[in-house]
């Protein structure tokens, strides 16, 4: 083989191989979608303030993961895994909690940590913690390491003791939600991660951190500060 033919072989190899890889990468990236971004809606009255609402469900029937609950209808889930908030803004967050609960394995997560004022409002009542055994899930937010002061917010989402199920979402029926409101202030652009610290997933050892807790988009998601 002369040199030009060799160069041709090299070029074809790299183009064919690289092209195949790029195609595979494209398919892969488009098959692992984030859910549709949930924008934090900026307030028209207060500057640097926005509000956003999430929910936590005992199953996936309300349809976030597809009709009839998608591949795992019985898994607990947050209503969105992709929240976008502006930088240097106070985020007023509302979480509607539809699920029951029990004991967290670390009592630290019964407390409100890192919110503005160190408190949260549960159905309008201002609290700093939830009674032992009354936690359903938690909203626990943390930052990427190494950015100096990291954002850390953890709010217990109390047990929903509702016995009537008047709320219909998707194919599921749910009690009236426990409404938890709190706020925190974002810094500069970054990606933060939130998940639940209540062991609410199935698992073989019974520590509750398998399945829904290990699957992206169920009990976890990201908050992107833009």
């Amino acid at each position: 083989m002369d040199r030009s033919k060799s160069l041709g072989v090299a070029l074809v190899s790299v183009l064919l191989g690289g092209g195949a890889l790029a195609l595979g990468g494209f398919v892969l990236a488009s098959n692992t979608p984030h859910q549709k971004a949930l924008q934090c809606i900026e307030s028209s009255t207060h500057s640097h303030t926005c509000s956003v609402t999430l929910s936590t469900f005992p199953d996936s029937l309300e349809g976030v993961h597809g009709a009839n609950g998608g591949p795992h209808p019985d898994w607990v889930t947050y209503s969105n895994d992709n929240v976008v908030v502006p930088a240097n803004t106070t985020v007023n967050m509302t979480i509607d909690q539809y699920d029951t609960g029990g004991n967290v394995n670390n009592p630290f997560f019964d407390s409100v940590v890192g919110t503005n004022g160190g408190t949260a409002a549960v159905n309008g009542k201002v609290v700093t913690h939830v009674a032992l055994g009354d936690t359903g899930h938690t909203f626990t937010l943390r930052g990427i390491p190494g950015n100096g002061k990291t954002l850390f917010v953890s709010v217990p989402l109390p047990y929903n003791f509702g016995t009537k199920f008047p709320v219909r979402l998707g194919t599921g029926t749910y009690p009236k939600p426990v409404v938890v409101k709190f706020s925190f202030t974002t810094g500069g652009p970054a990606v933060y991660e939130f998940n639940c610290e209540f062991p609410c997933g199935g698992s073989r050892e019974g520590n509750g951190f398998g399945e829904a807790m290990q699957a992206f988009g169920y009990m976890s998601g990201t908050i992107t500060v833009k």
Binding site: I144, P145, F152, E193, Q214
Partner: peptide, 16 residues
């Protein structure tokens, strides 16, 4: 930081 792989959000397991 957490330096032992520990599941889904291992990359985010840090404290200040």
């Amino acid at each position: 930081r957490c330096e032992q792989f520990c599941g889904l959000n291992h990359a985010f397991m840090d404290a200040v």
